[in-house]
Design a protein around this nucleic acid. Structure first.
Length: 142
RNA sequence: UGAGUCAGCCGGAUAAUCGCUGCCUGUGACGAAAAUGAUCAGGGGGAGGAAAGUCCGGGCUCCACAGGGCAGGGUGCCAGCUAACGGCUGGGAGGCGUGAGCCUACGACAAGUGCAGCAGAGAGGAGACCGCCAACUUCGGUUGGUAAGGGUGAAAGGGUGCGGUAAGAGCGCACCGGGCCACUGGUAACAGUUGGUUGCAAGGUAAACUCCACCCGGAGCAAGACCAAAUAGGGUUCCUUAUGGUGUGGCCCACAUCGGAACCGGGUAGGUUGCUUGAGCCUAAGAGCGAUUUUAGGCCUAGACGAAUGAUUAUCACCUCGCAAGAGGGACAGAACCCGGCUUAUGGCUGACUCACACC
């Protein structure tokens, strides 16, 4: 049985981890979230959260969003490759229900995973492809 | 029943599944061993009344410091409580409210300086616009007296009455009020059907400068302490000069680099600590009107660091809607070194009291 735990190995811990990802990441977004991601060498996916005070004023709401994101990531971690993900939020998240946010996140994990694959189209023209395997060799471009 | 005042309490419960975290008990990887304790399993903990604003006051830590003064800031009726306070308790005075009750930086403007729009004649040892009175008069007024009346204003230099007077006026008197000095009560603020004295003389504003009394060194857990990586980098000693040394690598080749080794401090990344046993909480008894405090017994009750304390489901309570089936709802809000307050946000429950109306 797969483990759904969420230990410290699955998190981004230091500022240096974050700054690595902010440099030329793959992106994916919904109306309330933006994900940035990059492949890593850790042997497992890792998650980092940034919930800006500017976007979400109350501490209670910031905590709620982080917990939802962690929970969702925890349950979806085995569908992901070895990538580092940074999650950022947009204005208005604090007004959404738990149900709605979880729904968006569940889709978003797969989307970002897809865009992180080597050879995945970096620029805008983006084509959805089914998830195939660990290392798809030379995927078609455009 | 409605309106209101003051207190106190609660901040849904239980279960299942999947997770996080640090504590305890086992397990004990790596290690020659000890030590340290990776990993896994189990157990039992895991946000608040405001955790918030960061407005005060302390503890703790480092820095500074003989003593005194200036500057700056704060406090401001009295007494008490407290580690301390700008807090609280009790009391006084003034004000608001029919009332239960509530509010007040509430020292000094007779040390000095300043400020006060408009109106008004005059705004501060005042003042004559109308009025009143007297004298003069060309009968239009003029001069003088006058603060009782009118008018202005937020505010006009005690109030009422009598006497008095040309008309008036503390001008005189009585009463009321005020000032001063005693006395009495009270620790004091202050009070008084107390006594004497004073005609009563310069109003407001000090969250205006100022004066008076008292208090205050600075920075903050990102404080501070310890460990400590690099082809980073400093010092001392010794050894070596390139057919050599060092790094990458199992080795050769190769590539890169130019001294090397030992020791010593400083210290970045990072880690450990500070970090939760404390002016602590609960219960009982005693002291006190009370804030509070004394004694005895019991308890250990979150410690994260890109930051845990969660998510989902079910059942039961509660509230709203509905005849019912059922549907919907649960506020304000998240610890960051720790306490004591204040302030602000907010859902509900209970009790005591007040007022109004109705009934008996």
């Amino acid at each position: 049985m797969e483990s759904f735990s969420f230990s410290r190995e699955l998190r981004l811990l230091t500022p240096s981890h974050y700054s690595r990802i902010f440099n030329e990441p793959a992106r994916a977004a919904t109306p309330f979230f933006t994900l940035l991601a990059k492949p890593n060498e850790a042997g497992q996916p890792r998650l980092g959260l940034t919930v800006a005070k500017k976007r979400c004023k109350l501490a209670v709401q910031r905590n709620r969003i982080k917990r939802l994101a962690r929970e969702s990531f925890r349950l979806n971690q085995h569908k992901l490759d070895n990538i580092d993900i940074v999650l950022m939020v947009k204005s208005g998240v604090d007004e959404q229900s738990n149900e709605e946010l979880t729904k968006q996140l569940n889709k978003l994990w797969l989307k970002i995973n897809e865009r992180c694959k080597p050879g995945a189209p970096k620029p805008k023209p983006y084509k959805k492809r089914p998830y195939k395997g660990k290392k798809p060799a030379k995927t078609q471009q455009k």
